[in-house]
Computed example of a mutant assay.
Amino acid sequence: MERAQEIKHRIVTTFQRRVANPLSTRMPGQVLIETTGRSSGLARRTPVGGRRVDGSFWLVSEFGLASQYVRNIQADPKVRVRLGGRWYTGTAHLLPDDDARARLKTLPRYNSAAVRAFGTDLLTIRIDLTD
Rank of each mutant, 00 (worst) to 15 (best):
T35F: 03
A92S: 06
N72Q: 03
P47Q: 15
R45K: 09
W58L: 13
I125C: 01
M1K: 00
A102K: 06
Q16K: 07
S112K: 12
I73K: 02
L129E: 03
N21M: 03
Y69D: 09
D97G: 02
R26M: 14
E34D: 11
R26G: 14
D54Y: 09
W87S: 03
L42D: 14
V81E: 05
T130S: 13
G64T: 01
P108K: 04
R80Q: 14
V60I: 08
R10S: 10
N21I: 00
A43D: 12
F63D: 08
T13F: 00
I73N: 03
V115R: 04
D128W: 01
G49D: 15
R82F: 12
R17M: 06
G37P: 02
G119A: 01
Q74F: 00
P96D: 06
A100V: 04
R116M: 09
V70E: 03
L123I: 01
I33E: 06
L95M: 05
W58D: 03
T14P: 01
I125V: 12
V60W: 09
T13K: 11
T120N: 01
H93A: 12
L107G: 04
L32V: 02
Q16N: 11
D76Q: 07
S24I: 10
G49Q: 12
G55R: 11
R38G: 13
I11P: 01
H93S: 13
I127C: 08
D98W: 12
D121R: 11
Q74K: 05
T130H: 10
Q30M: 15
T106I: 05
L59Q: 11
T124D: 07
R26A: 12
L94C: 02
G64F: 03
R109K: 04
T130R: 11
N21G: 02
R45E: 15
K78Q: 15
S39H: 08
T14H: 12
G37L: 01
V81Y: 08
A114D: 13
P96R: 07
A20T: 13
H93C: 09
P77D: 05
D131E: 00
R17S: 13
T120R: 04
T91D: 06
F57V: 09
M27W: 13
I11A: 09
R52A: 15
R116N: 03
A66Q: 11
D121M: 09
I7T: 10
I127G: 08
S61D: 01
A20P: 08
I127D: 09
L59D: 08
W58M: 05
V70F: 02
D128V: 06
R82D: 08
S112R: 08
M1I: 00
S39V: 13
L94I: 02
S40I: 12
P28E: 06
D131Q: 00
T106Y: 06
T91F: 02
N72Y: 00
A114C: 12
D128N: 05
S24H: 10
A117L: 14
Q30L: 11
E34P: 01
E62V: 00
P47E: 14
S39A: 13
T120A: 02
Y88F: 15
Q68W: 04
T14G: 04
G84T: 08
A114K: 14
L59H: 11
S39D: 11
A75G: 00
D54N: 13
D97T: 07
A92N: 06
V12M: 09
S61C: 07
R71M: 14
T91N: 04
S40E: 11
G49L: 10
A117Y: 09
A102E: 10
Y69K: 10
A43F: 07
G29S: 10
R52T: 12
L94N: 00
V48E: 07
